[in-house]
Amino acid sequence: MKQSYRYIIGALSLLAAMMMVPNGMAEAATARDNYRTYCAQCHGVNGSGGGVNTESMSVQPRDHTDAKGMSGLTDAKLKKAIAEGGLAVSKSVLMPPWRATFNDKELDALVGYLRELCKCSE
C-alpha cells in the first residue's frame, strides 16, 4: 500500500516537473505572439516602431530594438508603461494601457520580450 503511494507521488512530481520546464518556454513564445498581435499594430512586427498604424500618428511609437534608448528604462518603468499606458509615465496617450488585456504574468513576459528585442538590460 505504502509503496504504491510512493509511486503515485513520484509520478505526480515528475509530471509537475515536466509541466514546469516548457511553461517558461511557452510563456516566452506567448509574449512574442502577444507582441505581434497587439503591439505590432503600432510598434511593428519586428519592434522597430514601424507598425501599419504609424502613418497617421502624431507621436511615433518607441523603437523597441533601440538598445541605447531601451536600456535607459527600468523593467518596472516598462511594465508601468505597458500596464497603465503612456500617460502614467508622462508619455503620449497614444501608447494605450493594457492591464485589461493581460494579466500580471503576461505583462512580465512582455517586459522580458522587450529585453529580447533590444538585446539590452536595464
Binding site: 499594430q41 501599419v52 497617421s56 500618428m57 502624431s58 501608447m95
Partner: peptide, 21 residues
C-alpha cells in the same frame, strides 16, 4: 478622439485618415 484619447491611432474618421487596424 484624436488628442485626448488616442483613438485615431487605430481608427479612421474618414477614408484614408486614421489607423487601419
Amino acid at each position: 478622439f484624436d488628442k485626448f484619447s488616442g483613438c485615431l491611432a487605430c481608427h479612421e474618421i474618414e477614408p484614408g485618415y486614421g489607423g487601419v487596424t
